[in-house]
Amino acid sequence: MISIRNISANAGSFILKDINLEIKDGEYFVVVGPTGSGKTILLECLAGLQRLRGGEILISGKNITPVPPERRELGYVPQDYALFPFLDVRENIIFGLQPKKISKQELEKKVSSLANLLSIHHLLDRNVRTLSGGEKQRVAIARALAISPKVLLLDEPMGSLDVRTAKYLRLELKRYHEELGITTIHVTHNLIEAEEMAERMAILHMGQIEQVGTPDEVFFYPKSPFVADFIGTPNILDCDYYNDIGHGLIEAVCGGVPIILPHHDGPVRKLTLLPRDVYVTTRTPPGPGINRFRGTVMEITPFSSLIKLTIKVGEINLLAELPQDIFEEMDIRTGHEVHLILKLRSLRVY
């Protein structure tokens, strides 16, 4: 168990204020927040790389606050991975084992098992400058894991990867976590990454924790206006009744609007859907009319580079989001009638 109690830290003009977190053994915990919210500083406080102004950090009941980073036994993977360019892949991996003065045989065994776990056997003799982003990430994780850390700290591990590689490596990270069962703290600004990876997550904003919970708790029950804005307030639809319509499908009627979704065990009381999963179009969409509705634009609110639309469908108001350029192209105004498509796979049932 990692207990972070009332920690505060100053980094230049930035202040981390009274952070309290409890992270369970073996948990995959994600700290998510916009750029400049203090995620990296929080991770550096855990690693012992930032001096605390107050508070303490306990791991398995032991206060590690005064322990220097080299004796904390935490595996740290920084942004951009910081692989040592003057060493090859193998030398990078064993770098943390050299102060421990272990035998050559043991070193080789360790390298081999890490290379198997991370599928990097073919890279061991390569110059790190020649690696792709995904390969660098795996080598950096191997280097961090080589010291058999109690906790793995990952700072924006997908930050510099393309979408497809990031998606693949998220699955890989989950696999390493399942195989090793190591407590992992992962910081990111990417909500989709957080939702996909986290067992629990914390939302950080301007150096303070706004909310801690499972992704579902955070996404569907945001505790503060900031969290609601940051995740994009979800649509929560109260369902009046539901019918099994066969073929593994059910029809849930929420506020007079019939929504078709895959069969669900147990009662269907509420459906939730993020605004980004409500597609808006001014033309009649082709194909069958399942989960496609007509609605009237009630309100238009600009939010950063997005436009938020409140659209009345039947008796319910649905919130949708559009990028500003697409919104302008569609020339949507209040009172206009639009077509909506609900992304079936993103509907959640409660």
């Binding site: 012992g48 790389l49 080299e70 740290y76 943390g96 102060p99």
Partner: peptide
């Protein structure tokens, strides 16, 4: 910083 966390 990485060097420090790796035991140096």
């Amino acid at each position: 910083r990485v060097g420090r966390t790796l035991g140096y």
